[in-house]
Computed example of a mutant assay.
Amino acid sequence: MSGRGRAGMGQGMRRRSLTVLAVLTVAAVGVTGCDAVGGDSPPGEEKKAQPAPRPTPVWDRSPDSVAAVGDSITRGFDACTVLSDCPEVSWATGTSPEVASLALRLLGGDRAVSHSWNYAKTGARMADLPGQMAQAATRLPELVTVLAGANDACRESPESMTPVADFRDDFEDAVATLRRAAPKAQLYVSSVPDLKRLWSEGRTNPLGKQVWKLGICPSMLADADVVDAAATARRESVQQRVEDYNGVLREVCEADERCRFDDGAVYEYRFGTDQLSHWDWFHPSKNGQARLAEIAYEAVTAKEG
């Protein structure tokens, strides 16, 4: 065979080899493509993406236990008898059906007794809250309620009110205390009530004004009928401090994913004389305690914080 013939034969063999290689390559690519959409999927049909599992909500709208910290409001002070605590009508953990406390609404009668605890103290200020929170945390509650700050504003004079920076430090300390001992506990924080409105409502009752002279919130309630420039400025400074406190409560709570602030609902609630104690015309009556319980229940069970 001539050299040209052998060369032609070699070129033909190389062409056939390249053809076979191309076919095998196409087949391999085809197999790989089938695997990408699922080996059993019909041609042209892509595998549907599986939906990502929904994350478990951080906030539990039906906690199984409740602990309360705070001041005289949460102790039901002056709601039953004069100048006395009455925790059974507390908005947070009370057992009175007349009030229907947050604990009663969330837990039911028997469990409200066995699975709720009230560590609030009459006269307590924000500086007392870390200690109360440490006590509450020992119970490992699923929900802790906070209503504190009125006594920080209710001092002998506006000059002796708790500075806002100290108020913030004490509240942050209280939250940190809870988080160290009970990191998954939920926190419901109530705003400080509108003290100026309580003054304007309570001053209509002569008996209430006599009780105020015993020393109830003098920075706001002293000389209840005096409305001159100095008295007005004094009350306005107290009111501004309450609003500043509520700003702190909101900001600190927003920094904690397991905390819900009431968004100012208690501060904005227009307490009337029916909601005020008929012993001192300043603290919540049983009716007022029931209104606080309603506000708290709506906040705790809301779908979004």
Rank of each mutant, 00 (worst) to 15 (best):
Ala165Gly: 08
Leu129Arg: 04
Cys86Ala: 08
Gly108Glu: 05
Asp60Arg: 07
Lys121Asp: 09
Ser157Lys: 11
Thr177Phe: 01
Leu147Glu: 01
Ser157Glu: 12
Leu140Arg: 05
Glu88Tyr: 14
Phe171Thr: 04
Arg105Ile: 02
Ser65Trp: 02
Glu142Val: 03
Ser157Trp: 06
Arg61Leu: 04
Arg61Ser: 04
Ser65Cys: 09
Pro141Asn: 01
Arg179Pro: 09
Ser160Trp: 02
Asp85Tyr: 15
Val82Pro: 04
Thr74Leu: 06
Pro163Ser: 08
Ala67Ile: 08
Met133Ile: 02
Val69Phe: 07
Ala67Asn: 15
Val175Ile: 03
Ala148Leu: 05
Ala165Asp: 12
Arg61Val: 03
Ala148Gln: 08
Glu172Arg: 09
Thr74Ser: 05
Pro163His: 09
Asp60Trp: 02
Ala165Pro: 00
Gln135Gly: 12
Val66Lys: 14
Glu156Pro: 09
Leu106Asp: 00
Asp64Ala: 13
Ser62Pro: 01
Ala176Phe: 04
Ala79Ile: 06
Pro63Leu: 08
Gln132Tyr: 14
Ala182Gly: 12
Leu104Thr: 05
Ala136Glu: 06
Ser72Thr: 11
Thr177Pro: 02
Arg139Gln: 15
Asp71Cys: 13
Ala68Arg: 15
Pro130Trp: 10
Arg179Met: 06
Leu83Phe: 06
Thr95Ile: 11
Ala174Ile: 05
Gly70Ser: 10
Thr162Ile: 05
Asp60Tyr: 00
Phe167His: 00
Lys184Asp: 15
Trp59Lys: 01
Leu129Thr: 09
Glu88Cys: 01
Ala182Tyr: 10
Pro163Lys: 09
Ala124Arg: 08
Ala112Cys: 14
Arg105Cys: 00
Asp169Arg: 01
Trp59Cys: 07
Val66Trp: 00
Ser101Arg: 08
Leu83Glu: 10
Gly94Asn: 12
Lys121Asn: 04
Asp166Gly: 04
Ala153Arg: 10
Ser160Tyr: 01
Thr162Val: 14
Pro130Ile: 06
Ala150Gly: 11
Arg168Ile: 12
Asp170Ala: 15
Arg168Pro: 03
Pro141Cys: 07
Glu159Trp: 11
Met133Tyr: 13
Leu143Ile: 03
Ser96Met: 07
His115Asp: 12
Arg180Glu: 06
Phe167Gly: 03
Ala68Asp: 15
Asp60Thr: 08
Ala150Gln: 03
Ala92Phe: 07
Ala120His: 02
Gly108Arg: 12
Gly70Val: 10
Met126Tyr: 11
Asp71Glu: 10
Asp78Gln: 13
Ala181Met: 08
Tyr119Asp: 01
Ser114Glu: 15
Ser157Val: 10
Ala92Asp: 03
Ala124Leu: 01
Arg155Val: 05
Asp64Trp: 03
Pro158Glu: 01
Asp60Gln: 14
Asp78Ser: 15
Leu147Cys: 05
Ala137Val: 15
Gln132Lys: 12
Glu142Arg: 12
Pro141Lys: 14
Asp64Tyr: 00
Gly131Ser: 15
Leu129Ala: 05
Leu147Ile: 14
Glu159Asp: 15
Leu104Ala: 11
Asp166Glu: 14
Pro163Arg: 04
Asp71Gly: 13
Ala136Tyr: 11
Ala176Ile: 00
Ala153Trp: 09
